[in-house]
């Protein structure tokens, strides 16, 4: 097999690999939402409820610990 042919095969399989990753990521997003691991869409609210006084969409645990210590 010549180098060019090898490059050709490598390119083809690499493309397949990337496509698998891409679809895998989409599946992962939808699956974790369906299984209740994470609700992605609620993060969209971060831009809307962004006053200092608004309750965080998800509290930063570090921040909460610091408050408890006080």
């Amino acid at each position: 097999m010549s180098l060019t042919e090898m490059q050709g095969y490598a390119f083809f399989f690499f493309t397949i690999f990337l496509v698998v990753i891409l679809y895998g990521y989409i599946l992962h997003l939808y699956k974790s939402e369906k299984d209740g691991v994470r609700d992605y869409e609620k993060y969209g609210k971060m831009a809307l409820d962004d006053e200092l006084t608004d309750k965080p969409i998800e509290e930063n645990p570090k921040e909460t610990n610091e408050k408890k210590e006080k």
């Binding site: 990521y25 989409i26 997003l29 939808y30 992605y40 869409e41 969209g44 831009a47 809307l48």
Partner: peptide, 21 residues
């Protein structure tokens, strides 16, 4: 645009998942 359009219109991003992808 991901910040100012939602904020100005009062509408959350249509699909946050699509934004990540």
């Amino acid at each position: 645009i991901y910040y100012f359009l939602p904020k100005e219109s009062g509408q959350a991003v249509y699909s946050y998942k699509l934004s990540l992808l």
